[in-house]
Design a protein around this nucleic acid. Structure first.
Lengths: 220, 220
DNA sequence: TTGCAATTCAAACAGTTGTATGAAACTATC
DNA sequence: GATAGTTTCATACAACTGTTTGAATTGCAA
């Protein structure tokens, strides 16, 4: 167990480098150079490169997931097991957006790392994300309790669209800033959250989304 | 220019392999083996591996973009330079969704390749995507003409959310199917398009999205 | 047929990658 | 202060990568 110093130096260096340059072109040699440790230290402490990446990603995403569930639980306790849909959606997308957006100069390494992880998709991270379904089911449950009249399918689509807007905004934040010539302020995280929640709420509550295209022949 | 046979054999093999196994673990040697040609043929015909990938992606995405613009132009000509927002949004997300979703067994190689390209993010493709902004501006213009009362910022956010829902649904279609235990039918492409368009239209037309979070202190 | 360019091919190249090894340095316990 | 266990280190390994080379082959025009 000892000092743990080498271990955490590697974690910090790896997070920084991956955040800055992406998974694609950061090698173990880059990481150990940045951390000032020996090459073999990575395999000694983590087993393999993939396990290092996985450990980084897991620790960050369980933090986010815990925060999500904390907000969800608080909301449902408030409303007696039946929270307003806006609050549920806010618990779903808020922690992620708060963790990844915000003024660039004061953006944490962890935040920038998570942005990378959502842009590039590397095997160890993909594996972990696939296990996220159980976590999402808890939100499906809360949403169904909140909107008992809504069909199950609509709930799934609403959840899908909420996550879509949050993740895409994170992932393409640079492009949106460029496209809008800075008019969309991605640093105002609470505004972004409000927009996502607002649209997702409309999607879930508007007098039934038409389930079919206006006319089948209109399509191609 | 001769027979072109080798060239197109490489393109076909590469598209197939990338579609099936992703960019990460398909080597030039895999491609030439599948195509039944010599290793050096790739560099001879395409210059480099990246240029091969770029050519694949470019040819597919200019096809999609052309279709998008065709639909957009048709819509604006119908409405005398002012198309209904639903039709504009349909022109924006329809071609992409039609190109990537649909019954898996009858999904073309090109479709599966484009799904890969939207999941993994490899340098040559990223470079091309960055040049997509000019293309999107044409939609911004049409949307502003369609909704002259709407603020510019709201237009950008609406566009962002529409693309978000379309791309995320493509990218995470497998997860959505699993999460909903098959209840969300991603093979019914026109239904998916209708849902995306419907929500995006609400986002853009609903009595002004609140521009700010309910209360600034509610955060964190 | 001859000549010339375009194409194919086997082979090698040069570089990088993650990982393994075994000795050395350290640390704490007795 | 010797011992046992942990950690560090330099170095080598083995495999794989995209690319290049130069000779062989092909196809076509004169």
């Amino acid at each position: 167990m000892a000092s743990d110093h080498t271990r955490s130096a590697i974690l910090a260096a790896a997070e920084r480098l991956y955040a800055d340059r992406g998974f694609g072109d950061v090698t173990l040699r880059d990481i150990v150079a940045e951390a000032g440790v020996n090459l073999a230290a990575v395999n000694y402490h983590f087993g393999s490169k993939d396990e290092l990446i996985a450990e980084l990603f897991v620790s960050r995403s369980i933090a986010t997931n815990r925060e999500r569930l904390r907000e969800l639980k608080a909301a449902e306790e408030d409303g007696g097991c039946r929270a307003p849909i806006e609050v549920i959606l806010r618990a779903l997308v808020g922690p992620t957006l708060r963790g990844c957006l915000g003024p660039e100069n004061q953006r944490s390494t962890a935040a920038r790392f998570m942005i990378r992880a959502s842009i590039e998709s590397v095997p160890p991270i993909r594996r972990i994300k696939n296990r996220e379904i159980d976590h999402l089911r808890k939100f499906v449950g809360a949403m169904r309790r909140s909107l008992p009249d809504r069909s199950e399918v609509d709930i799934y689509w609403g959840l899908n669209f909420a996550l879509a807007m949050a993740h895409h905004t994170i992932r393409e934040s640079e492009r949106l800033t460029k496209l809008s010539e800075g008019k969309c302020d991605l640093d105002d995280v609470e505004d972004v959250i409000a927009r996502v929640v607002s649209v997702a709420t409309m999607a879930l509550t508007a007098g039934r989304m038409e389930p079919k295209a206006p006319s089948k022949v209109a399509a191609r």
